[in-house]
Computed example of a mutant assay.
Amino acid sequence: MMNFTVLTVGGSFMMIFSGVWSFMSYHKHLLNSLLSLEFMVLGVFWLLSMEMGGLGSEIYFSLFFLTLAACEGALGLSLLVLVARGKGNDLFSSFNLLEC
Rank of each mutant, 00 (worst) to 15 (best):
residue 47 L to M: 15
residue 29 H to W: 10
residue 13 F to L: 15
residue 89 N to A: 08
residue 32 N to M: 08
residue 62 S to C: 12
residue 14 M to H: 00
residue 79 L to C: 05
residue 50 M to S: 13
residue 32 N to A: 09
residue 67 T to A: 14
residue 19 G to P: 04
residue 82 L to E: 00
residue 54 G to R: 12
residue 48 L to A: 13
residue 43 G to A: 11
residue 8 T to E: 10
residue 54 G to F: 04
residue 96 N to R: 15
residue 17 F to I: 05
residue 30 L to Q: 13
residue 58 E to A: 09
residue 28 K to Y: 10
residue 60 Y to A: 05
residue 87 K to M: 10
residue 61 F to N: 04
residue 1 M to K: 05
residue 56 G to E: 02
residue 73 G to Y: 02
residue 35 L to H: 15
residue 36 S to Y: 05
residue 99 E to N: 12
residue 59 I to F: 12
residue 85 R to L: 12
residue 94 S to Q: 07
residue 48 L to E: 07
residue 10 G to M: 08
residue 53 G to C: 06
residue 40 M to F: 03
residue 15 M to V: 03
residue 21 W to V: 13
residue 52 M to A: 14
residue 20 V to Q: 02
residue 74 A to H: 03
residue 47 L to R: 11
residue 4 F to N: 02
residue 40 M to D: 01
residue 29 H to S: 15
residue 56 G to V: 03
residue 27 H to M: 06
residue 26 Y to C: 06
residue 3 N to W: 13
residue 94 S to T: 11
residue 29 H to A: 14
residue 22 S to I: 11
residue 71 C to S: 11
residue 58 E to M: 03
residue 2 M to K: 11
residue 95 F to H: 10
residue 57 S to Q: 08
residue 4 F to T: 06
residue 75 L to W: 09
residue 46 W to C: 14
residue 18 S to F: 13
residue 54 G to S: 13
residue 38 E to P: 00
residue 48 L to P: 00
residue 1 M to Q: 04
residue 78 S to W: 09
residue 5 T to Y: 15
residue 21 W to T: 03
residue 15 M to W: 00
residue 86 G to F: 09
residue 76 G to Y: 03
